[in-house]
Amino acid sequence: MKVRTQYLVALLLVVIAFGVSAYFYPQMPDRMATHWNASGDADGTMSKLWGLFLLPTLTAGLLVLFAVIPRIDPLSENIQMFREQYELFVVLFVAFMLYVHSLVILWNLGYRFEFTTVLAPAMGVLFYFIGTLMNRVERNWFVGVKTPWTLSNDEVWKNTHSRAGTLFKFAGIIAVLGAFVPVYAIYFMVVPAVGTSIYLTVYSYVEYRRVTV
């Protein structure tokens, strides 16, 4: 798949999100459920205009940002080295956002399901692919584990992202398992991701000290 085609696919998914929102607009309640708590219960609402179009608009804005990043990063030549994986991530991320948007619409159409349970597999796939991306990413200012220590040393960047690839894949697998334990699904998604982020921050500092001292 060519680079240009990947962005076109992502753009098509955004257009679909807007189209679905417009199609179901008359069928939506005036106040749409748009937020669910850790137990999977709806506990927040928005007007149907915002409920239907906020997420597609946010996704469109992020897609523009993703497209611009390789052009504005001072280390853009490094991004070219993992450009294919980066843009596959863009497509996957936009597809994930469309999936979440579809769940919101289905819920407001009257279908009932454990929101966190059906979200867990998609979140797991996203985390797993992030792990794949981490294994390929080269030093840059926008993508990856960006701490003062990874950005200051190529070896620290490489070692940290090698570790990040494994941990995010592991977090993805755990998130998918959350679908089988609905009561704790949210924790299967959040705890590994947060724990991984904290660990990698500390690890990058320790690795920097090891390499430079």
Rank of each mutant, 00 (worst) to 15 (best):
L11H: 02
Y86M: 14
N37A: 03
R163M: 15
G195R: 15
Y111I: 07
V211H: 11
F168T: 01
V183Q: 15
L63R: 02
F82G: 07
T147K: 12
A120K: 00
N37I: 04
Y187K: 07
Y99A: 13
G61Y: 05
V68F: 08
L167N: 14
P56V: 08
Y184G: 04
R210I: 09
A67H: 07
A164W: 11
T196I: 07
E77F: 11
F93P: 03
L200K: 12
A179W: 06
Y7G: 09
V183F: 11
S76C: 07
A164N: 11
G19I: 11
Y86P: 01
I72T: 10
Y208S: 01
M97Y: 01
V176P: 03
A17D: 04
H101D: 01
R83G: 06
F170W: 13
F142H: 02
K158M: 09
D41I: 14
K2Q: 09
V94D: 03
S197G: 14
T160W: 06
G110M: 09
P182S: 08
L151R: 02
M97G: 00
Y187M: 07
V9P: 05
I79H: 06
Y208C: 01
I69W: 11
Y205A: 11
M189D: 04
L98G: 15
V206H: 08
D43T: 04
E138P: 03
T201Q: 04
Y128T: 01
V202F: 13
Y128D: 06
L103A: 07
I130V: 09
T59R: 05
V190M: 12
L58D: 02
V145L: 06
M46G: 08
Y23R: 10
S102F: 12
H161N: 15
M46V: 03
V191L: 15
A164F: 07
L54W: 11
I16L: 12
N159Q: 15
L126Q: 00
W36Y: 11
F93T: 13
R209N: 12
M123T: 12
W157G: 00
F66Q: 00
V176Q: 06
F142G: 02
S152H: 05
F142V: 00
A60M: 10
Y128M: 14
I174Q: 04
V191Q: 05
S47N: 14
Y205C: 02
G44K: 07
Q6L: 14
P29N: 10
T201P: 02
A185Q: 04
E77I: 06
Q80T: 15
R210W: 10
P182H: 10
F82I: 01
Q27Y: 09
T57E: 03
V213M: 13
S21W: 01
V145Y: 02
G165K: 14
L54A: 14
R209K: 15
L103G: 12
E84A: 14
H101F: 06
L55T: 02
Q6H: 04
I130L: 11
T196V: 15
